[in-house]
């Protein structure tokens, strides 16, 4: 049965324009968007942007300080740090999206189940959430990674599977309040199945907070990945990631400051970008802050 009242298509373009304008009026969102945009651009065009092959070993130019030939210096194997930094953006982008995608999917499904069905389903899932929240997750991640092969995919999956609790709580709360609304009741009267109600009616109305928390979650995922790579159980060299570049920085702390400074700065700016974007989106969706 066709239930949707089609919204006026003529004004669709205008509304889109207005939304963009409103988004761009917030300096938080704009600076976040710019940073994330730069990250995406860098990751996509890394081979074009990088002045050298990030894996090319050059034993004649080991640990050189930043110069015009190597803007950010070279590492212990003579590899160009700027090029490695640029290629490292790919890892960050990938980790952010995949890990958060997994966390959001798991959290949304579990939160929806808990909020929609209530009763024992709710208590079971929420108990599980409590357990996971009490977990010092890095210990679990370390334990798992140590047994699996430390690869970027394993890292992303494990980060995703240990960071869905916030989303689950959020979605549950949304469902609890939304499932009692009239439009849900109406669609139930029309004979919609549970699946249709959950995914067709309630979930679309809970997208805003999920989007905000996912955006804010990307920063956390990137930080976790970099910490794991720094410890040597994340992305493995020679593949450059900002975290494993810092390991080398630590090993050469006394002689090569540039190895420690720039990759961390890249992480800082990237995470900052996602956080700013998330905060901006939160303001955007918050009806209390509407002028």
């Amino acid at each position: 049965m066709e239930t949707s009242l089609s919204s006026t298509p003529i004004r669709e373009g205008k509304r889109w324009q207005k939304t963009m304008l409103e988004l761009c009026s917030n300096p938080l969102t704009v600076s976040g968007l710019v940073i994330v945009g730069i990250l995406v651009f860098t990751a996509l065009f890394a081979p074009v942007l990088a002045p050298y092959d990030p894996q090319r070993i050059d034993t004649f130019h080991i640990l050189e300080a930043p110069s015009s030939a190597h803007l950010l210096g070279t590492d212990g194997l003579g590899r160009d740090c700027l090029s490695r930094l640029i290629f490292g953006a790919r890892i960050s982008l990938l980790v952010g999206f995949v890990a958060v995608g997994i966390a959001t999917a798991v959290g949304t499904v579990l939160g929806a189940l808990a909020g929609y069905y209530g009763r024992w389903v709710d208590s079971l899932i929420m108990r599980f959430v409590d357990i996971m929240l009490c977990f010092p997750t890095i210990f679990l991640i370390m334990a798992v990674i140590a047994f699996l092969e430390p690869s970027i995919w394993n890292i992303m999956i494990v980060i995703g599977l240990t960071s869905w609790m916030g989303v689950a709580r959020l979605v549950r709360a949304e469902f609890l309040s939304l499932k009692k609304r009239d439009f849900v009741l109406a669609s139930r009267i029309c004979g919609a199945s549970d699946l249709q109600i959950v995914f067709g009616e309630i979930l679309p109305n809970a997208i805003a907070p999920i989007l905000v928390s996912a955006t804010l979650g990307v920063g956390g995922a990137i930080l976790t990945e970099s910490a794991l790579s720094f410890l040597g159980i994340g992305v493995q060299p020679p593949t450059p990631s900002w975290g494993n570049m810092l390991t080398e920085g630590k090993d050469n702390l006394e002689i090569a400051w540039w190895l420690s400074v720039f990759p961390g700065l890249a992480i800082l700016v990237t995470v900052l970008g996602y956080n700013l974007l998330g905060e901006g989106l939160r303001d955007f969706f918050d009806p209390r802050k509407k002028r």
Partner: peptide
């Protein structure tokens, strides 16, 4: 606060070691 949220703590550790230690 925004900066502290976004900074990887182990990197801050490295920087502080660099400054205060070395």
């Amino acid at each position: 606060v925004f900066l502290a949220y976004a900074a990887p703590a182990f990197w801050v550790a490295l920087l502080l070691m660099l400054l205060f230690g070395i």
